[in-house]
Simulated assay, not measured.
Amino acid sequence: ERIAATWAERSGRIARRREPITGVSEFPQLSQAPVEREPAPAGPGGGLPVVHRDEAYEALRARSDAHLAATGARPRVFLAALGPAAAHTARATFAASLFQAGGVEPVHDPVSVDAATAADAFTRSGATVACICSSDALYAEGAAPVAEALKAAGALRVFLAGRPGEQRETYLRAGVDEFVVAGGDAVAVLTSVLDRMGVA
């Protein structure tokens, strides 16, 4: 019971990326080929239960891999970065790492968008969901019209990277569906995204 309780606590930390797994929940690289190796020999029966720290993320990646094999492309998220690189790089990097941990390929092209260009850039990206990334100051100026443009262009879900603060209701009314933050449940977010995208 104590082992199970410890694993449940650790699983929560892993899901929230508070206990990072390099190459899996942090700094994943979708283009990297999986490691091929001989299976481990079967151990003796009994003993402690076997758990794998990365099993939740690997299950998400397996869904993405199957989608890639079936369609020729991974599920994608469009990173709608506002303003100059100095304003959006930190949150765009956070969002890219978060989504790649679940096998969702980030598309960050063009480097920056605004309300006039976001819809066209989203459509060209081939993504079905989007994540707005920038500083709090630029969010206050441009996040709401960009969210509206992304929704009008057909985004199934619009995320905003960071805590919304007092602007929460404004962003929700404009079309932001969810806020992704450090310490949030990444596994739950990624599972929901893949479900909404129809990735089996």
Results as ranks from 00 to 15, higher is better:
L156A: 15
E178N: 11
L156S: 14
A96V: 08
R63M: 06
R173S: 15
A116Q: 08
G183E: 08
V158F: 13
P41M: 10
V181A: 11
L79E: 14
D136S: 04
V129D: 05
P49Y: 08
G154A: 05
T89C: 04
V77A: 00
A56S: 13
Y57E: 02
V107P: 05
S125T: 12
I21H: 10
S31F: 06
S134T: 15
P39H: 00
A161I: 10
A62Y: 14
A92D: 06
L190Y: 15
G23P: 13
G23Y: 12
L48N: 09
R37K: 10
G46A: 11
R124P: 04
G102T: 00
A42P: 00
L48P: 01
A73Y: 04
T170Y: 03
T93C: 03
V189P: 14
A116D: 10
R2D: 14
R124S: 13
M197S: 10
L190G: 03
D136F: 11
P145S: 09
A86K: 14
S125M: 15
Y171K: 05
P44F: 01
V129W: 00
R76G: 05
V193K: 00
F122C: 04
A92Q: 09
Y139E: 04
V107K: 14
V51M: 08
A155I: 01
A96W: 09
F27R: 05
W7G: 00
V50E: 10
V180N: 02
R53S: 14
A140G: 08
S11E: 08
V24F: 13
G162D: 06
P49W: 02
A96H: 07
C131L: 09
G154T: 06
A80P: 09
P49I: 07
V189W: 14
G46R: 06
L68C: 04
P75Q: 02
E166W: 00
A33N: 10
D120I: 02
A188V: 15
A8D: 15
A155L: 06
R61G: 03
V129H: 00
V158C: 06
R10Q: 14
S25V: 07
A5C: 12
A140K: 04
V193H: 01
G102W: 12
E26P: 02
A153Q: 01
V189K: 06
T71G: 06
V51Y: 14
T71W: 09
K151V: 12
T71M: 09
G162K: 03
D195S: 12
E38G: 08
S125K: 10
H67M: 03
E58N: 05
D65L: 05
V189F: 15
L190T: 13
D65T: 10
C133R: 04
A62H: 05
G198Q: 13
V104Q: 05
L194E: 04
R61Y: 05
Q167I: 01
F122E: 08
G142E: 05
C131Y: 04
T170M: 05
L194S: 01
T170F: 03
A95Q: 11
D114R: 03
L68M: 09
A70L: 07
P164V: 09
E148I: 00
S135P: 06
A130V: 06
T117G: 00
E169I: 00
D114H: 02
